[in-house]
């Protein structure tokens, strides 16, 4: 992956030096060696801060919303999954295509945060990384650290629809991770769908009960582009601010509804949840239903395909019965 990293740095340097972009949003070294964090580069001489490795799990697209009053052009590093957010933001008219340069990466796959934290010593500096069928191998100053795909590969990578970005101006990396066809079948959702009602109720009650209502899921979500959020409003009081099972459940249902047809399954909400609520299951249930009911593609995979729930067509499958 050193090659990808070098290409990102070289291209960013060129773009900044030539004045083609005024800002590069990418990944940089994290607060400890098991993490990366977003970096915002405005000068060509700073491109050395950009990294790319299997620790680049987050989706940077959300930062485009933070910078949407920026007067210059912005280059942004996206993986296959993140690129769908770019399409979605374009469809929601939150960004302008001509102001964005997409640095796409054919993503080889990403490492589970928990595994990274457990196995990478704080002082071990990463020098090279590979992801292939043999597993995830990290060459560090503290020696070679390996993970089998089974233990190390992120769940969402295992279910990855396209590791190749659906939109990009520059494309780095030879070939991305190819998920097993069977893993694309929403088996995680189907398993819960098949459970008895009481069990499903217990399952969600257990998680929703412990929600802190910190709204990290919302804040990290690239689909949450409202200027004012219903969860912050006092009038109308869409949902009470109190933290209890009833209001927490209402909060999570409304959050899921608000991203329905627009959620690209980037998994940020679940990644940032301090209470470890399996929010992707909720999002993926809706993605699966929309797919089955409307035959709609994964949101963000096609710039021309409007979200299934945001237009009306006379030949809508729902209006046929």
């Amino acid at each position: 992956m050193k090659g990808i990293e070098e290409q990102i740095r070289a291209t960013s340097s060129q773009l900044l030096a030539a004045g083609d972009v005024q800002l590069v949003i990418g990944y940089g070294a994290g607060s400890d060696n098991s993490k990366t964090m977003p970096v915002f580069i405005k000068r060509a001489e700073d491109v050395g801060k950009l990294v790319f490795n299997p620790l680049c799990v987050s989706n940077l697209a959300n930062y485009l919303l933070h910078w949407n009053n920026f007067e210059g052009k912005i280059a942004i590093v996206v993986k296959g999954c993140d690129s769908r957010s770019i399409i979605r933001l374009l469809q929601d008219k939150q960004i302008e295509r001509e102001k964005i340069v997409v640095l796409g990466v054919n993503c080889p796959g990403q490492l589970k945060s928990g595994q990274a934290e457990a196995k990478i010593p704080v002082e071990a500096v990463l020098s090279e990384a590979t992801v292939d069928n043999g597993g995830i191998k990290l060459q560090t100053s503290g020696g070679l650290i390996t993970f089998s795909l089974e233990e190390g590969l992120l769940e969402k990578c295992r279910q990855c629809e396209s590791s190749r970005p659906v939109v990009s101006d520059y494309l780095f990396g030879e070939k991305g991770f190819e998920a097993d066809k069977a893993a694309l079948q929403f088996n995680d959702v189907a398993a819960l769908e098949g459970a008895p009602l009481e069990e499903k109720s217990r399952y969600w009650d257990k998680y929703f009960e412990r929600c802190l209502r910190c709204y990290a899921c919302r804040n990290s979500c690239p689909a949450c582009s409202c200027r004012e959020c219903v969860f912050d409003m006092v009038e109308p009081d869409w949902v009470a601010k109190t933290v209890n099972l009833s209001d927490n459940t209402a909060f999570h249902m409304i959050r899921a509804f608000h991203v329905a047809g627009r959620c690209t399954d980037c998994g940020e909400c679940e990644r940032v949840c301090p209470a470890e609520i399996p929010l992707r299951i909720l999002n993926r249930k809706i993605i699966k239903d929309i797919k089955e009911l409307f035959g709609a593609p994964m949101p963000g995979s096609d710039l021309e395909a409007l979200p299934a729930l945001s237009f009306y067509a006379v030949n809508d499958p729902e209006s046929q019965n």
Binding site: D92, K93, Q94, C226, R227, P307, S310, F311, Y312
Partner: peptide
């Protein structure tokens, strides 16, 4: 208008 983000989802919905 202060609240509207300009996504125009409403435009496609309006019959």
């Amino acid at each position: 208008e202060a609240m509207c983000s300009g996504c125009l989802a409403c435009r496609e919905i309006c019959p």
